[in-house]
């Protein structure tokens, strides 16, 4: 058994693809229609190439409620690792990204939290 695919629910798949590629810097791996939605995955240019993140529609009312409640409580639904969180924080801020928490040391990691504009909070972390 391997972990090759994980997913995050997004409000608008096209907008999410734009944010996850143009702003966060991931690369589109797959995009094709499934009914009225799309199967979209992105990978990190820093690898691993075979680990894909699927941007799934949050069309299901249960998904919307879950997403909204977690957001309200300030809980991130995904975490991405970076080797220089301060630099990433400044780069993303210059692109207009909203952070709800600036980089803070939390034990063995430094973390920051941003909004992906698609209904989720995302945690960035840098292991020390």
């Amino acid at each position: 058994m391997r972990i090759r695919l994980t997913s995050i629910m997004v409000e608008d798949q096209d907008k999410a693809l734009k944010f996850y590629t143009e702003t966060l810097g991931f690369r589109k791996k797959k995009e094709f229609p499934v009914g009225e939605y799309k199967w979209i995955t992105v990978v990190s240019p820093e690898g691993p190439e075979e680990l894909e993140l699927s941007l799934e529609p949050n069309a299901n009312p249960a998904a919307k409620t879950f997403q909204r409640e977690m957001f309200k409580q300030g809980i991130p639904l995904a975490a991405f690792e970076t080797s220089n969180i301060q630099k990433e924080y400044e780069r993303l801020q210059s692109l207009g990204v909203v952070f709800t928490s600036e980089p803070k040391r939390m034990g063995p990691v430094t973390i920051a939290v941003l909004s992906d504009t698609c209904g989720n909070l995302i945690q960035l972390y840098e292991p020390s």
């Binding site: 499934v34 009914g35 799934e56 069309a59 299901n60």
Partner: peptide, 20 residues
């Protein structure tokens, strides 16, 4: 089809969708 909980579990899609 209209309110999927998970795209890969949309079992009632036509076979053509899975060909994709």
């Amino acid at each position: 089809q209209l309110f999927p909980g998970c795209l890969s579990l949309m079992g009632c899609l036509p076979p053509s969708a899975f060909r994709n």
